[in-house]
């Protein structure tokens, strides 16, 4: 497993593989593998989704991805 950090200017829910899990700006654990990340059905952000590959990233150096308000 590895840690994922999803950056966004405000705190909001993070969806991984279409399931809500975790919040923005706080590292959380996800299984190793390829995942599709988005910020939920209220699509006022860009891009629509991100693809990430997680492979054992530690808390101190999480896999980081980001979204911007639209």
């Amino acid at each position: 497993m590895g840690f994922l950090l999803v950056e966004y200017p405000t705190d909001r829910q993070v969806y991984i593989d279409d399931v809500q899990c975790g919040t923005t700006n706080t590292p959380f654990q996800v299984p190793n593998g390829r995942h599709i990340i988005d910020l939920g059905p209220y699509r006022n952000y860009a891009p629509t989704f991100r693809r990430v590959e997680v492979f054992g990233e530690p808390y101190e150096a999480p896999k980081t991805t980001s979204f911007d308000p639209e």
Partner: peptide, 17 residues
């Protein structure tokens, strides 16, 4: 404990606090 999108996922529950 090691999957996030399965029906029974402790990883998801803990990720959601």
């Amino acid at each position: 404990l090691t999957s996030i999108a399965r029906d029974f996922s402790l990883l998801r529950l803990q990720g959601n606090g």
